[in-house]
């Protein structure tokens, strides 16, 4: 039994070694002797989050983000980086638990000012998400697991799509500042941390794609409209070299809206789903 286990473990190690050497062998990436942190980039994101109720249990999750980043001359908003279209059909399991499944079309702009490659390439994703909320005194805390299946390509002409999986977990709290509960005219602060891991054939070593630490201030205008803004620090391994870390400072501005176009008659039972 013991001998058997040793044999299997040994085999695994060998496979891992082989894979690693194989990749290295292909791209000839040389790991630095110690991690290298690139200069942080400054970015600004304009994010809209739509949550459009379509039935008692289903909603349409519609997010559009406009992400800008610095140029040499202009910090934060120097150039467009990505335009992001994330859509899903969500299922409301209960007031505090919901799931989503959908697709993303992201338009990536070439932000390398020296590049002569294509300016714009699309990126495709399938994503699913599991969100859990729980009240804690006056605050709420949230756990979000999001899994994305991602097809990306480089800006070079005729470059191939590469396939990766992203594994994301976000912890977020929302703490009301001027109220003891969330209702219109409430300002809240929301610290959050999200770890984005990735995997895939093309991912060798660079498993921590991003670690995002954010603090946001939000304002609930109405139950259907919330505005928020915050600053995010993030860093993660570059795909090219696990020893290199990119860093970003991002200003994020959010607009959350949740219209409900259903007739009043149909709306009523949806207030209380299971209690």
């Amino acid at each position: 039994m013991n001998a058997n286990f040793k044999r299997i473990f040994g085999l695994c190690l060998w496979v891992m070694f082989w894979c690693t050497t194989n990749t290295y062998g292909q791209d000839e990436v040389i790991l630095p002797s110690e991690s290298k942190f690139k200069e942080p980039k400054s970015r600004i994101w304009f994010n809209t989050y739509g949550n459009i109720r379509i039935s008692k249990r289903l909603f349409w999750d519609a997010q559009t983000h406009f992400r800008f980043e610095e140029t040499e001359d202009t910090p934060f908003i120097g150039q467009i980086g990505q335009i992001y279209n994330r859509h899903a059909i969500g299922y409301i399991y209960s007031k505090r638990i919901n799931f989503s499944l959908g697709g993303v079309l992201r338009i990536n702009f070439n932000t390398d000012e020296d590049s002569s490659d294509r300016n714009v390439v699309p990126e495709w994703r399938i994503w699913h998400q599991y969100q859990f909320a729980q009240p804690l005194y006056a605050a709420m805390i949230y756990h979000r697991i999001r899994i994305e299946h991602r097809w990306t390509q480089g800006f070079e002409e005729n470059s191939d799509y590469i396939y990766r999986n992203r594994w994301r977990y976000m912890f977020r709290a929302k703490i009301p500042l001027n109220n003891n509960k969330f209702e219109p005219n409430t300002i809240y602060v929301s610290p959050e941390a999200e770890l984005i891991m990735q995997s895939g054939k093309e991912v060798v070593g660079s498993v921590m794609e991003d670690l995002r630490l954010t603090t946001t201030l939000g304002y609930i205008v109405t139950p259907r409209l919330t505005l928020a803004g915050g600053i995010m620090y993030s860093h993660g391994q570059t795909l090219e070299n696990p020893g290199e870390f990119k860093q970003n400072w991002t200003v994020r501005l959010h607009c959350y809206f949740s219209p409900d176009f259903r007739r009043v008659r149909n709306k009523l039972p949806a207030i209380h789903l299971d209690d």
């Binding site: 139950p223 949740s258 207030i271």
Partner: peptide, 15 residues
């Protein structure tokens, strides 16, 4: 009117 706010996952009163 009691409204469920999906972003907060709470129920809020709306005038």
């Amino acid at each position: 009117d009691a409204i469920w706010n999906p972003f907060m996952a709470t129920i809020m009163n709306e005038e």
